[in-house]
């Protein structure tokens, strides 16, 4: 039995999600935005795992596993985009990526 109530886990998870969201919105650097996105995804994973623990349902862990794989794929593509953007613009500032056409 865990002594920590479920609401504590959920508050922590939402705190991480909120911090990540603030980072994505306020930072205009592509790398920092991606890092903040990772923080958001980790907050979601924490909420999933807390629910899994409290419901005693291990199949939720499979969902978190898949979220992790998707996050890894997202980072790989995002960082490749950062490199392409750096080659093209000479910066990774999201405000300078306003054009859809190269």
């Amino acid at each position: 039995m865990t002594a920590i109530p479920l609401s504590h886990w959920l508050v922590l998870a939402t705190a991480l999600f909120a911090i990540g969201a603030i980072g994505v919105i306020t930072r205009r650097n592509l790398l920092i935005a991606l890092m903040s996105l990772e923080v958001m995804l980790n907050g979601v994973a924490l909420a999933f795992l807390a629910f899994a623990r409290f419901r005693g349902d291990v199949s939720v862990h499979a969902a978190v596993f898949i979220v992790m794989a998707v996050a890894a794929a997202e980072v790989a593509v995002g960082l490749a985009l950062a490199i392409a953007m750096w080659r093209h613009n000479g910066s990774v500032d999201l405000d300078r990526a306003a054009r859809l056409k190269g």
Binding site: M1, L6, W9, T14, A15, A18, I22, F54
Partner: peptide
């Protein structure tokens, strides 16, 4: 940011309370 966090906390509380079995599974 503070307002978003407070709303998120409130949502988390409601979601946590709505789980029928609020003690951890044995």
């Amino acid at each position: 940011g503070v307002a978003a966090f407070l709303v998120a906390v409130r949502v988390a509380m409601v979601a946590g309370a709505s789980v029928a079995n609020s003690t951890a599974a044995d």
